[in-house]
């Protein structure tokens, strides 16, 4: 433990706080804080997944919310048919089936859109990922079977053996465990040889290609992993809110995810968690004061870009030097 850096201490503290306080509050009748923490942790998983490609891979995806939506609809649609009939092939409350569906759909969507988007660079990539997510948004908006814009209510949560997602404590436990797993997975990927190439290509693609790396393949693989993780976050979010609508995939949601990653500090392990915490708290506090909370939020975003280098983690590390 002696050679732990400041940032690993911070990470440890954050994760302990997240493990201890929400259950404590729930047990003392403060379910509200548990709700907040569950949302934070689930969005944290999405932010961690985005950080893999944005922070470490330099792929500025402005369409990550699409994966959240796809994951959530993978819960909602089978559940909807199981309740109301129709589409027998997928009608089911079975959590394992829904989870598999969420993961496969997110992965396939990532593979197809990634294969096209990654042929482009820079601004094109930003806009194309945005456009593809908006395509998913409009697709679900146009599906009257699933109430289009008005969205779906999930009457029955995903059913798993051993875990009961109707219990806030168990849902939080699953989400928290998933967040830890996601962070470890990203850390492992980043430190592996694969991750070295990914980070090298972010910094200097030409050099990596000249060394013999097919960087397109590396990027696409990372993109699919990230999209799939984010789809999993959507699966959890659907089970948490029990209400899903195309709005979950709107491009402004993707913008919020990006904000979390950059605010917390891209290409750091803890950054996305810090970012999503600040976002959730700010949303909660500001929106309780005023319906115009997007105004201070927007100003903060501008300020973040103009004045804060490296996000909150940058500030933390900067003081250490």
């Amino acid at each position: 433990m002696k050679n732990m850096t400041k940032t690993s201490w911070a990470t440890l503290i954050c994760m302990v706080v997240l493990a201890v306080f929400p259950p404590y509050f729930l047990l003392h009748g403060q379910a509200f804080y548990m709700d907040l923490a569950t949302r934070l942790v689930i969005l944290g998983i999405a932010a961690v997944s985005l950080n893999l490609i944005l922070g470490y891979g330099g792929m500025v995806s402005f369409g990550h919310a699409a994966f959240i939506g796809l994951g959530a609809y993978a819960v909602g649609i089978p559940s909807h048919h199981a309740t109301w009939g129709g589409f027998d092939l997928i009608a089911s409350y079975n959590g394992l089936f829904q989870l598999a569906l969420a993961i496969v759909i997110a992965a396939v969507f990532a593979l197809i859109t990634g294969a096209i988007s990654l042929r482009t660079k820079g601004v094109y990539f930003i806009m194309i990922t945005m456009a593809f997510s908006q395509m998913a948004f409009f697709l679900f908006q146009s599906l009257d079977v699933y109430n289009g814009d008005d969205g779906l209510t999930i009457d029955v949560r995903s059913e798993f053996p051993f875990i009961n997602l109707d219990s806030p404590m168990q849902l939080y436990g699953l989400s928290y465990g998933s967040l830890v797993a996601a962070m470890l997975l990203v850390k492992t990927i980043v430190n592996s040889r694969f991750g070295m190439v990914l980070q090298g290509a972010k910094d200097n693609n030409e050099r990596m290609v000249t060394l013999g790396y097919n960087t397109y393949f590396y990027r696409l693989t990372a993109y699919v992993i990230s999209g799939t993780m984010c789809g999993y976050a959507g699966f959890l979010l659907g089970n948490f809110t029990t209400f899903i609508s195309p709005d979950m995939m709107h491009w402004t949601r993707s913008g919020e995810l990006m904000f979390m990653v950059i605010l917390g500090g891209a290409s750091t392990a803890l950054g996305p968690i810090l970012g999503s915490s600040v976002f959730i708290l700010m949303e909660e506090i500001l929106s309780s004061f005023t319906i115009f909370w997007h105004l201070p939020f927007g100003l903060m975003l501008i300020g973040l870009v103009l004045f804060v280098r490296g996000g909150l983690m940058g500030l933390l590390k900067g003081k250490g030097k």
Partner: peptide, 15 residues
């Protein structure tokens, strides 16, 4: 470009 996108996203919310 990342900063452009984030900054103008903030601007959009403000406007």
């Amino acid at each position: 470009h990342l900063d452009h996108v984030l900054g103008t996203f903030g601007l959009l919310l403000v406007l």
